[in-house]
Design a protein around this nucleic acid. Structure first.
Lengths: 212, 212
DNA sequence: GTCTATACCACGATAGAC
DNA sequence: GTCTATCGTGGTATAGAC
C-alpha cells in the first residue's frame, strides 16, 4: 500500500490508481464502465459505447456480466468498500492518539482519497446512487449504512469527550460534512489540486467555521 | 409573496408551491417533467412516461416543446432564476443592518427555500446539471455564474469587514457551503422537516464549526 | 473469450386527422 | 390542442460460430 507521509493515510492499491496503466479483461470493463457512468450518468451510458471504449463488441460484454444493472451493482458495492477500507486505515492508531480535529482530518483525507485517488468507483457511487434503479439501490443500502455508522460513531465519541460542543447534532453534522466532501466531485480537479491541502482546509472549516 | 416572519425571507409565489393544486396546460407539463427528472434523472425519464402523468399522449407534448432537451433547458433556467430571486429578496435591507451570521442565515434560508418550497425546478437544476447534455449545459452556464457571483460577493464583503477570518478562502468556503446545502436534497424531507431550524443549524455550523 | 448477426422493444420525433 | 399512427434509430440482450 502506498503510504502518505504527510497525513499518514494510505492509498489502497488493489484498486487502480488514477494513473495506473489500464487493467485488462473483466476488470478493465468495470473500470471503464465506472468512468463512463461517472461522466455521463448510468442511463445515458450505452453498452455499445462501453464496448467501444474497452475495445470489444457489445454482445461480448455478456460473457462477463448478465446485465447492465449487475455491472452497476458491482461498481456501487466496490465504491463503498473502498470508502470503508480508507476509513478503517485512517482509524488505525498511530504511536500517539491524535487530537479531535486531527482525527477528523485523517478521515476526511481518507474519504477524499477514496473519491479521487482510487479509481472512479467511489465517485460513481456518490453520483449515481440516488437515481439508480430501485432493485440496485436496495441491494446497496446495508453497506452504505455500515459506512455511515462509522462516521456517526467517530463524531459521537468526540462529543462524549467534549471535543465537540454539546449542542451539536452529530447526525446533522455528518450529513453536512458528507455533502461538503462529496460535492467536491463537481469541481475538484484531481490532476491539478492538492488533496492534502483541501482536506486540511475542509476540516478546519468544519471544525472552527469561518467566523473571525 | 408569502413572507416568513422568523427569518424575513420570502417565498416566491409565481412559482408553484409544493402543495399547490396542479397547474394546467403547458405549465403542468414543465412541473411534472421537473419532478420526474428530479426523481429518476433526465435520461431515465421518457416522454411517454411524462405524457402519462400529465394525461396526454406522447406526441401531443410536441405542440408545446420542440424537443426533450428544450424542456430540460427551460427547467434548468427556471431553477436558477428561482434561486436568484430568493437570494435578492434575502438581500433586501431590513430596517436595521443584519450581523454577519444573520446575513448568511437569511441567504441560506432563501437557498433552501428555493430547493424545497418553490417546486422541483431548483432541486432538478442541482441534481441534473452535471450530467446534462453538453449543449444544454453551455446554455445555462452564464446564469449559474451570475448566481455564484452573488454569494462570492457576500462572503468577500464579510471578509473585508473582518467578520470572516482573513485566512479563509472564500471561494472554497462558498463551494463547501453549496455542497452542504445542495446535498440536503438527498435526505431532507420537506414534508416533515423544519426548514427554519435546518437553516439555523447549517449556518451555525458554517459560521462557528463544531468544536467545543 | 470474442465475434457476427439479430431479435425485440422502446425511444424521440413527425404527419395529418379531428 | 390533442389524437392516432408511424418512422427511423438505437437500446439491452441472446444465439451460435469461431
Amino acid at each position: 500500500m502506498g503510504s502518505n507521509p504527510k497525513t499518514g493515510s494510505t492509498t489502497i492499491t488493489d484498486a487502480p490508481a488514477a494513473d495506473t496503466p489500464k487493467a485488462d479483461g473483466r476488470q478493465r470493463i468495470v473500470d471503464e464502465a465506472a468512468a463512463l457512468f461517472l461522466e455521463q450518468g448510468y442511463a445515458a451510458t450505452t453498452l455499445r459505447q462501453l464496448a467501444d471504449v474497452v475495445g470489444m463488441k457489445a454482445g461480448s460484454l455478456y460473457y462477463h456480466f448478465s446485465s447492465k444493472d449487475e455491472l452497476l451493482t458491482e461498481i456501487l458495492q466496490r465504491g463503498i468498500e473502498i470508502m470503508q477500507q480508507a476509513f478503517d486505515t485512517a482509524s488505525a492508531p498511530g504511536p500517539k492518539a491524535a487530537s479531535g480535529p486531527k482525527q477528523i482530518e485523517a478521515h476526511v483525507r481518507a474519504h477524499l482519497a477514496a473519491l479521487f485517488e482510487n479509481g472512479p468507483y467511489t465517485a460513481t457511487h456518490v453520483t449515481t446512487f440516488r437515481t439508480a434503479p430501485p432493485s440496485v439501490r436496495t441491494a446497496i443500502v446495508p453497506v452504505r449504512d455500515a459506512y455511515e455508522a462509522r462516521w456517526t460513531a467517530l463524531l459521537d465519541n468526540l462529543k462524549t469527550e467534549k471535543a465537540i460542543r454539546a449542542d451539536v447534532d452529530t447526525g446533522l453534522a455528518r450529513l453536512i460534512l458528507f455533502g461538503a466532501m462529496n460535492s467536491s466531485i463537481e469541481w475538484f480537479d484531481a490532476e491539478r489540486g492538492n488533496l492534502d491541502h483541501f482536506a486540511t482546509q475542509l476540516t478546519q472549516q468544519f471544525w472552527s467555521g469561518v467566523s473571525a
